Amino acid sequence: MSIDIGFIVTAFFEILDALPLTLVITIVPLLFGFVIGVATALIRMYKVKVLHRIADAYVSFLRGTPIILHVFLIYWGLPLLIDKLSTHYGWGIKTASIPILSFVLTAFSLTAGAYMSEIIRSGLLAVNRGQIEAAYSVGMSTPQALRRIVLPQAIGVILPNLCNLFVGFLHTSTFAFTVSQMELLGKASVVASNNLKFLEAFIAAALIYWGITVVAERLTAYLEKKVTKYNRGGVT
């Protein structure tokens, strides 16, 4: 058996058409997940009444079950809930008109929020407690101390973990193909099936995934260097 190098190049550019959707499925949930993660981490750290138990259960369930299961639960369950509520309250919403991508992004965002909350919580705990007390001593409120002192330092600590999470969700985006979303691996499967050259198509897909990962790692290293300048005695 020989490998058709020319077809790898051809497949590479065909599969690349699915890159925008793959990046949307990867990045959008991480952005929403960051917001969810910050809120969840703070609720759990400050033991907000009632809410912290809900947050604990949310994180435990989402981290303790497979991501593809979350996709199926949201894809099959959320439309039933929306349709039932729409009928009961007369909203006039039909889930058949809602893009499938919306359910995929919802599932991934909830999952990202659970993982983000643990990453962010570890970053917050890594910041010296004395800095928070110093902020209180100059009259800052807790939200001000978190926004101005704690979160900027925590982000510097968690950047490598955020990069790992990005790479993980980049790979997880392949699950979207199970509900008919044509991301990179799904596109590779179609290209391979149409030409009966599976090895070449999957090599092309692997090169694209690898390239995105390398870019993410380089960007993270650059940002980490910029954000953590305070650890080296300030800026020059």
Rank of each mutant, 00 (worst) to 15 (best):
M1R: 14
M1H: 11
I5Q: 08
G6E: 13
G6L: 15
F7M: 10
V9I: 15
T10V: 14
I15H: 02
D17C: 00
L19Y: 07
P20K: 04
V24E: 10
I25T: 13
I25A: 11
T26Y: 04
T26N: 09
I27A: 13
I27G: 05
V28E: 01
L31Q: 02
G33F: 03
F34S: 14
F34V: 13
I36V: 11
A39L: 15
T40M: 03
I43N: 00
Y46H: 13
K47I: 00
V48F: 09
V50G: 00
V50I: 12
L51N: 08
H52W: 10
H52T: 08
R53C: 01
A55F: 07
A55G: 11
V59W: 06
F61C: 14
R63A: 06
T65H: 05
F72V: 12
L73F: 11
Y75P: 12
W76F: 15
W76L: 15
L78A: 15
L80A: 14
D83K: 13
L85N: 03
L85M: 11
H88D: 06
H88V: 06
H88M: 12
Y89N: 08
Y89T: 01
Y89D: 11
W91Y: 08
G92H: 12
I93P: 10
I93Y: 07
K94G: 07
T95K: 08
T95E: 02
S97Q: 13
I100Y: 00
F103N: 12
L105S: 08
L105V: 13
T106R: 03
A107G: 08
F108K: 02
L110E: 03
L110D: 02
T111S: 15
Y115E: 06
M116F: 12
M116I: 04
S117N: 06
S117K: 06
L125W: 00
L125M: 14
L125P: 00
L125V: 12
V127R: 08
V127H: 01
R129D: 12
Q131K: 12
I132R: 15
E133H: 08
A134E: 13
A134I: 11
V138P: 01
V138I: 15
M140N: 02
Q144N: 05
A145V: 11
L146Q: 11
A154R: 02
I155C: 05
N161V: 00
C163K: 13
L165E: 14
F169A: 00
H171E: 04
T172H: 01
T172I: 10
T178L: 15
T178R: 06
Q181N: 04
L185P: 01
G186C: 05
G186L: 05
K187W: 02
K187T: 07
A188T: 03
A188N: 06
S189H: 11
S189N: 13
S189G: 12
A192M: 04
S193D: 14
L196C: 02
L196F: 15
L196I: 07
L199T: 11
E200Q: 10
A201E: 10
F202W: 05
A204T: 09
A205V: 13
L207Y: 06
G211P: 02
T213K: 02
V214E: 05
V214M: 14
E217V: 14
R218Q: 11
L219Q: 08
Y222I: 14
L223H: 01
E224V: 03
T228C: 10
K229E: 09
R232P: 00
T236I: 04
T236L: 07
T236K: 14
